[in-house]
Design a protein around this nucleic acid. Structure first.
Lengths: 198, 198
DNA sequence: GGAGATACATACTGGTCGGTATGTTCATTG
DNA sequence: CAATGAACATACCGACCAGTATGTATCTCC
């Protein structure tokens, strides 16, 4: 029964994601993940050859999909690029209220923790960030073609800065454990974004 | 001889700082710190009652002092606030080239890792960030009084966004392991800062 | 209906970790 | 000069961890 097996695999991924999101990858305990799911260690090592591979799978499958749902897909909607960005950011801000802002952005968490010590993590995260930047840069470039975004900026570099600011705001709010600080910081980003309108 | 004892204590703090900066607090191994210094476990536990207290001391003493030297002190120099900020940021960027950009900002590292799971860390980091914000906000407010900074912005909120962007740029560059990306991201921040000139 | 593979379950291992108990040296102080 | 405490040093402990070895039930396929 491939469906049962797949359910088990997904349950492990989901539990691993939550454990990693809260405690980080290294501090995430396999025993805790097993306890969460009711799955045994035999099952876990049947589906994943090591803790590292489990971590990679969480990134490649769970987190990548979440990023797509929360950011990439909504960015495809029509409208003025800055309006689209503003709406997506606003919506994500709401999402992170329920997801406990104190846990921070899952990608940034892993980036900070793992990129200096494991290149497999680093490259995967780099890919996600690259896609993210490209999505933003495409929006900006489209706006420049349409004449709705000023031409004096470089789309790629500006996208990089926007993403950095985004992650920075999440960072600040995470440490302050304050959704209000996230919103205040987001206002700063918004005023920057508005300065890009043609 | 209090001087010998103090040297030992400082040696432990320095080694602990480096170990924590590289691997994070939880993954930092006391054994590795001892090996670095040649100090024994007895000595370590004579000076620090637990690993947690050692971590707090690294923040309270080593990191706080580093922050003061690299950021707060240089921000006191005279000149147009934006010029001062630009120079300090530029100088810090150079510093982080040698300090291995791939290790990231020590404060942000600890914030991401520890703030959700230990309030002692979180509050200490919150204090450092607060001082940082206040230093920036003071510069901006002074500029507003002098008429060199536009009045339409709120100094405190803008300082928050600037700090967030700063940390975000460090974050991006850390994961990319690229000092060039730090500089490109910094350019985005600079163009934002310039938009604040009166 | 037997063979092999899939999908687990249980019990165990070696290693590392933070922390402690105890011993020792030496400098100060009454 | 004896006593005390600071400043270590050494040896050890229990807990937890990722990973493994082995067993078993079920399902597929010839």
């Amino acid at each position: 029964m491939t469906s049962d097996a797949d359910e088990t695999r997904q349950a492990i991924l989901e539990a691993a994601y939550e454990e990693i999101h809260r405690y980080g990858f290294q501090a995430a305990s396999l025993s805790a993940i097993l306890e969460r799911t009711g799955v045994t260690k035999g099952a876990l090592y049947h589906h994943f050859s090591s803790k590292l591979r489990l971590g990679y799978a969480v990134l490649d499958e769970h987190i990548a999909q979440q990023l797509d749902t929360l950011w990439f897909a909504p960015m495809q909607q029509p409208g003025h690029p800055i309006d689209v960005l503003a709406e997506v950011i606003q919506h994500a801000g709401e999402h992170y209220r329920n997801e406990e802002i104190a846990l921070g952005c899952p990608i940034n968490n892993l980036a900070q923790e793992m990129s200096p010590i494991d290149d497999g993590f680093r490259r995967r995260i780099d890919n996600l960030y690259r896609q993210w930047r490209e999505n933003i840069a495409n929006l900006l470039a489209k706006g420049q073609q349409e004449g709705s975004i000023i031409n004096s900026i470089h789309a790629n570099d500006t996208a990089l800065f926007i993403l950095a600011s985004l992650e920075g705001c999440m960072s600040m709010a995470k440490n302050a454990q304050s959704h209000d600080e996230l919103m205040r910081c987001g206002q700063g980003l918004m005023s920057y974004l508005n300065s890009l309108r043609a």
